[in-house]
Amino acid sequence: MNIGRVCAVICFAVLGLGAAEPERLLSGAELAALDRENALWRLIRPDEEVALNLGRLRKAGFSEAEIKSVEPRLRAWWELPMKREFGRLSEETVEKIAEVDARHVARLRAARLKREVGVQSEEFKVGTPLQVSLQWRRAVLRVLEYDEIAEFAFMNSEFARLVQIHADQIVLTADERRTLIEWEREFLVVHGRPESWEGATSKVRLWHQRAQEDAHDRIRELLGDERAVEYLAGAHPPLGKMCDAIVDESVSATALLNLWKFRREYRREPDASWNYQRRLARYESAQAKVREFLGEDAYQNYTKQADARWMFMPAVVRTKR
């Protein structure tokens, strides 16, 4: 027996290098389904909004089930980058940028359509979404003067993106938006993001936290309580979690912010006493304060939420009494 031949056969069998299995041929029904799907995507126009495209599919005889399966993907691909903010740019410059945007919106959508389903728009011959985005950015920069580039970059920076996310449901004046962007930039440059504080010493973390609290107080003063609680609840997840736990609509924005300020100060002060009665009195004092902020009904509802555990003595402490 040829040992080399035997070894080769074994290697091919183990590694899967033997003769490839013949590819499975698609059935007639499967081919028809593919043709129908291709026909559907070829009716999509990148220069028209989602609703118009869906209407065209209905007129072409596609079923509601087919349209329903397409719609979420189409909406995701048609979603544009963050909303532009123009700051102190002149109206003439804003109009120029709007013209550039109008030319590139359809091109970006066409690039996404090509990437996702392989359909190349006849009207928009494009490359990848990244290539279109870079071309778009260069086109915007070409219509700006040198002093305008810095303003546009600042108003559409990562700091501006944070403000836009946190203030999504809030009406801001141009000056308020600019101020918030400046504050976000200052804070992140000096302190970084809160998740990066974990490895720091307790002293450094406390410094970061105090700075964060000062920043929140400034935002509250700038926006007023109604808008500040909306902004900060999105910007600071622990506050957002507390607001979600207090579901009573009768609780005012001022009460929520005052409660949050009390809570952060309460938790920052260590409970150094080993005396059970003193510790119990401290927790009871906190509960009375929370009841004062929320009112009896909202307080009782809040006590049933996991977020309210901070104002109750842990069970392990009670059992070790």
Rank of each mutant, 00 (worst) to 15 (best):
I3D: 11
I3K: 04
R5D: 11
A8I: 12
V9E: 14
C11W: 06
L15D: 06
G16P: 00
G16R: 00
G16K: 01
G18W: 03
A19L: 13
E21T: 15
E23V: 15
R24W: 07
L25R: 12
L26S: 11
S27Q: 11
A32I: 04
E37D: 10
A39L: 02
E48H: 04
N53M: 06
K68A: 15
S69H: 09
V70E: 02
R73E: 12
R73Q: 14
L74S: 01
W77I: 11
E79Q: 11
E79N: 10
L80H: 13
L80Q: 15
P81F: 13
M82R: 14
F86S: 05
G87F: 07
R88D: 13
L89S: 03
S90E: 04
V94R: 15
E95T: 15
E95S: 15
V100S: 02
R103C: 09
R103V: 05
H104E: 14
H104I: 08
V105N: 06
L108M: 05
A111H: 00
A111K: 00
E116Y: 08
E123K: 14
V126F: 02
T128F: 06
Q131C: 04
S133W: 10
Q135C: 02
A139K: 01
A139P: 00
A139G: 00
L141W: 07
V143N: 04
L144D: 05
E148A: 00
E151R: 04
E151Y: 04
E151G: 05
F152C: 06
F152K: 00
N156I: 09
S157Y: 06
E158I: 11
A160L: 07
R161K: 09
R161Y: 12
A167G: 09
D168H: 14
D168I: 11
T173K: 07
T173N: 04
D175Q: 15
E176Q: 15
E176N: 08
L180C: 00
I181S: 01
F187R: 03
L188R: 12
V190D: 09
V190R: 12
G192P: 01
E195Y: 15
S196I: 07
W197K: 09
T201C: 06
R205N: 01
W207G: 14
Q209C: 09
R210H: 13
R210A: 14
A211L: 08
A211E: 10
A211C: 10
A211I: 05
Q212D: 09
H216R: 11
D217V: 05
R220Y: 01
G224H: 14
G224F: 05
R227L: 06
A228V: 01
V229F: 05
E230D: 12
Y231L: 07
P238Q: 10
L239I: 11
L239F: 13
C243F: 04
I246K: 00
A255R: 02
L256V: 01
L257D: 00
L257V: 01
L259H: 05
F262Q: 15
Y266N: 01
R268V: 08
N275L: 02
N275H: 13
R279H: 02
L280R: 00
R282N: 09
Q287Y: 05
A288T: 08
A288Y: 06
A288N: 12
A288C: 09
K289L: 11
K289H: 13
A298S: 06
Y299T: 03
T303M: 10
R309Y: 07
W310P: 02
M311D: 02
F312K: 07
F312M: 08
M313V: 10
M313D: 03
P314M: 12
P314D: 05
R318G: 11
